[in-house]
Amino acid sequence: MNLAFLASHGGSAARHLTQACRAGELDAVPVALISNNSRSPALDWAREEGLKTAHLSGAKYPDPDDLDAAILTFLREADADLLILSGYMRELGPRVLGAFAGRVLNIHPSLLPRHGGRGMYGDRVHLAVLEAGDTASGATVHLVTAGIDEGPRLAQEEVPVRPGDTLETLKARVQAIESGLMLRAVRDLIADLRLTENRI
């Protein structure tokens, strides 16, 4: 399976999964990375890793349909099989979601369906958990669909919310489990896809 990543900033999931591929912990090949941010550190990192890269954004393609088409063209040229959103701060269009249905993954820093949806990302999620008085938080890997954070959940791991937790302490606890959770989810999805393909 060829992995493609979409990142807006540092691309931590892309880095961890690529490292896992290089170490033989994940039977896949990282091939490409797209960023909507021309200054994204993930773009520089991906170039150094030998991945095919592209800066594709609304600034280049003001029409969302054109941007959707450009992303899909790039992914097809890169021969991508599976898409991983690695801190990608834009919605994917219907062409990409249709072409890669069941093959686009995202990780969200809460126990979905709690604290998901439009506008819920990054620090906002952890603050919402604290403000709600939740006793547990965590991370969820889910398939990406047209609805924000509404796709089928593939993997979920819980961490405690401790008395006296701050945004920083809770965020650090959740981030500590994200890499391993994403790796397991990608590994399981690849195994499921291969099994399905062998049955056809």
Score class of each variant (00 low, 15 high):
N2H: 13
L3H: 08
L3N: 12
L6M: 15
A7C: 12
G10D: 11
G11L: 09
G11S: 12
L17T: 10
R22W: 04
D27C: 06
D27E: 14
V29F: 02
R39D: 15
P41W: 00
A42I: 11
D44R: 15
W45T: 15
K52Y: 01
L56F: 14
D63K: 09
D66S: 14
A70S: 12
I71P: 00
L75M: 14
R76N: 15
R76L: 13
E77R: 13
L83H: 07
S86M: 07
Y88W: 02
E91Q: 12
L92A: 05
G93R: 09
G98M: 07
A99Q: 09
G102R: 00
R103G: 11
R103F: 00
R103E: 12
I107S: 05
L112W: 00
R114N: 13
Y121W: 14
V125A: 02
V129Y: 05
V129F: 00
E131F: 03
A132N: 09
A132Q: 10
T135R: 11
G138Q: 02
V141Y: 04
V144H: 01
G151T: 08
Q156S: 10
E158F: 05
E158D: 02
R162Q: 14
P163E: 14
P163N: 03
G164A: 02
G164M: 08
D165G: 02
E168H: 08
E168N: 07
T169M: 00
L170V: 02
A172W: 00
V174A: 01
Q175I: 01
A176H: 05
I177Y: 04
R184Q: 10
A185W: 04
R187N: 10
E197F: 00
N198T: 14
I200P: 04
